[in-house]
């Protein structure tokens, strides 16, 4: 049993576990709403849009998370504004804002001589999570889950039947923006776990796996949260046993869960056909 208990002896592993306990289910639950609105790619776009904020924060000597939050929230607002007022639709707005923010990030990063400070934002560093990080993650989780709980029925209705939602006085555009803003908050608070490159996978992959398994939103969110948590814990173990990067391992385990369920359904459907 030592192999099961030993990894938790270290304080940094305990903090890593707590961080994932807060962030993985939160991202997965929000990922369900994003995936069902068929805007899964927005997670990647928002995460990458944090880069110019991060680079600006380095140049100005500010907290990197603050910079990331400004970049991501700014991108969410810009995507919503361009999609609403332009003629290019949401996917066009997404691509224009995403690539522009990425280019701005690279441009600013060029002027940051040392990339040392940025590595844990870009690639994640779950084992170096501090107690302050945990407090911020807890606050983000509380805000996001509170909003999701309070407006859950309207978010679901506006996604499934926007015309009806609008006809009874719900504004689907505002709800969509609110969803993007809390998603941005969740992504930024989780950047230190798996990094800019992979944080959206922590949201979308468990949600996609859960979508294959159930027909009710509440069940989907519960299963997605469970899958995200299980892949996170297993990923931490694997990283401890075999000294591999925790963030990438967690995402790979999530991918393995998805493809296992997908293949099982494929085989089952062929068997029933």
């Amino acid at each position: 049993m030592h192999w099961l208990i030993d990894p938790w002896q270290d304080a940094f592993m305990q903090r890593a576990f707590l961080a994932l306990l807060l962030i993985a289910p939160l991202c997965a639950v929000l990922g369900c709403h994003v995936l069902l609105r068929r805007i899964g790619f927005i997670g990647d776009a928002l995460a990458h849009a944090s880069l110019p904020g991060v680079a600006a924060a380095v140049l100005l000597g500010l907290d990197l998370r603050f910079g990331a939050l400004i970049g991501t929230v700014g991108a969410a607002l810009l995507i919503a504004a361009v999609a609403r007022k332009g003629r290019i639709g949401e996917d066009g707005a997404l691509m224009v804002v995403f690539t522009s923010m990425l280019a701005l990030g690279v441009f600013l990063l060029y002027h940051v001589r040392s990339f040392q400070n940025l590595q844990h934002i870009l690639f994640g560093s779950i084992l170096s999570v501090t107690s302050r990080d945990l407090v911020l993650m807890g606050i983000a989780a509380f805000i996001c889950l509170g909003i999701l709980f309070a407006f859950g029925k309207e978010l679901a209705l506006a996604a499934a039947d926007p015309s009806y939602a609008q006809s009874i006085g719900i504004n689907p555009d505002r709800l969509r923006l609110a969803l993007l803003l809390i998603f941005s908050l969740a992504l930024v608070s989780g950047l230190s776990t798996v990094g800019v490159m992979m944080i959206s996978a922590l949201a979308i992959i468990p949600a996609a796996t859960a979508r294959l398994l159930c027909h009710r939103l509440n069940s989907m969110m519960a299963i997605a949260a469970g899958l995200a948590l299980s892949s996170s814990i297993l990923g931490l173990y694997c990283s401890s046993w075999w000294d591999c990067p925790a963030g990438a391992t967690i995402i790979l385990i999530g991918s393995a869960q998805f493809f296992s369920v997908w293949a099982w359904q494929l085989i089952r459907n062929r068997h029933h056909a």
């Binding site: 069902l36 029925k153 309207e154 679901a156 209705l157 996604a159 499934a160 039947d161 926007p162 015309s163 009806y164 006809s167 009874i168 006085g169 719900i170 979508r211 159930c214 027909h215 009710r216 939103l217 069940s219 989907m220």
Partner: peptide, 29 residues
Amino acid sequence: RIAYLAQRSSVDWSFPMTLMDLLLSGRYV
């Protein structure tokens, strides 16, 4: 007092929602 029933194609019928959930949404207003 006004119920708008859009064309069926405007509803996302693949949304993970049961008929019970859909009918209950009539009470939201």
